[in-house]
Nucleic acid binder design. Sequence first.
RNA 1: GGUACUUUGGCCGAGUGGUUAGGCACCGGUCUGCAAAACCGUCUACGGCGGUUCGAAUCCGCCAAGUACCUCCA
Length: 489
Amino acid sequence: MEHKLSIYNTLSRKKELFTPLHEPKVGMYVCGPTVYGDPHLGHARPAITFDILFRYLNYLGYKVRYVRNITDVGHLENDADEGEDKIAKKARLDQIEPMEVVQYYVNRYHSAMDALNVLPPSIEPHASGHIMEQIEFTQRILDAGYAYESEGSVYFDVVKYNKDYKYGKLSGRNIEEMLETTRTLDGQSEKRRSVDFALWKKASPEHIMRWQAPWSMGFPGWHMECSAMGTKYLGDEFDIHGGGMDLMFPHHECEIAQSCAALGKDSVRYWMHNNMITIGGQKMGKSLGNFITLEQFFTGQHSLLSKPFSPMTIRFFILQAHYRSTVDFSSEALEASEKGLERLMEGYARLQKLTPSAQSTVDVTGLKASCGAAMNDDLNTPIVISHLFDALRNINLVYDGKAAIAEKDLSELKEVFKLFMIDLLGLKDEVNSAEGTEAYQKAIDLLLNIRLEAKKNKDWATSDRIRNELTAMGFEIKDTKDGFEWRLS
RNA sequence: GGUACUUUGGCCGAGUGGUUAGGCACCGGUCUGCAAAACCGUCUACGGCGGUUCGAAUCCGCCAAGUACCUCCA
């Protein structure tokens, strides 16, 4: 595959040229949601980030298998080994089956992702559907000697592992320091050391989500699902593993440890992490209670939102920042994105209507290459967008008759917009001017033609009345040099 | 306390050792019957203090402020 895509590898802390293990195949695993609550803005970030990567790799010609899991078991609250299972708790509170909770929120997640134009992954495995694989993976770690059984639970022996491998290489953590800084255990714990983590947990009597394993009736630890499912579908070694930065430790660190312990090597070649979305400079998160759900964005039903924001506005907003930067949410910033996107989309529609001239007075050379270079530079979507805005100016100039464009340049512009804006950034036009029936559209045209006549007769009262009342109904009326344009905004 | 990161113009946000990022807002202009849209122009910044350099916002050091992770979080 001929390309120069570089991606930032968290493991090496630098950008690396991407080369897949088994060209032309690419295996990519991304941590999906724990389905016990409505998807919020934070969930949109990794979904969109890795959607861009998925689309781009496909465009480059790779055959990508994209696995994004659904965590529906084993994710505990509070201390990683003590709290109640998040799904089970929600089920208990709502007095429904855990799988009802799971299904409900999976559905909600899917419809939100669909609205955001996030392509579905190739495989979306549920942790609860891969208990056997997780038991087997745990057994392999036990067999390798890096785990121990205690009271029916199985724990990963971090200290022993650290002697043979290095624990903490992803997050840059030092295990000696961790052992010093963590408080001593109260003596009743089943764990030998506080840094050890659960691979399998024995279920307490009231714990409803449980399966039979050699060690006990219980459930898998949170980190186990990704190791088990990732390697099941992508092989013992695969190309890319992504997720939010907040998962780097302990989740991804533990995954690395599990894989190395069981397989003798790290499964993942490129670790990629998207940064957080902040609100007032603080991370937007479930635990802080300052998150805004995607549905609230779409409906505008939240005290921090001045108005509803469409899914594409959210997507564009996220893409206007680089995925490794934090992005600070505010209603004001979203409004700015909304306007910019609207202009870009309108330009795209105008582009389709331009007529070529014999020669160009605008310069569009290198546009495609610039956009491609930006994508290759660790998916620099803000730069791609800035190039699109530069091109937009040319489109508008031609549209206004202030510049001319040759056939060749016009088709390049069309190709670039289609490729980068629509196919790769995944932006789509949400304004549906073709809305309604033909008769309805003709009726609006009729009204505006009457206005046009009124204008010719300098009957400003009639002209303004039609325009103002249509505007009040939510139509957007634009005069052009020889007519008008309208749309329902 | 430990580790890491961040600090860019009114706001959001890229980026590079020397060249206008881009968007939004504002202001002025062109266009328009008036608007809207569009175009042109204006504003043109890089936390503070030192250092390296012909030249640093970009590299180094110190300081300040903030954030994240070290518990569950995308």
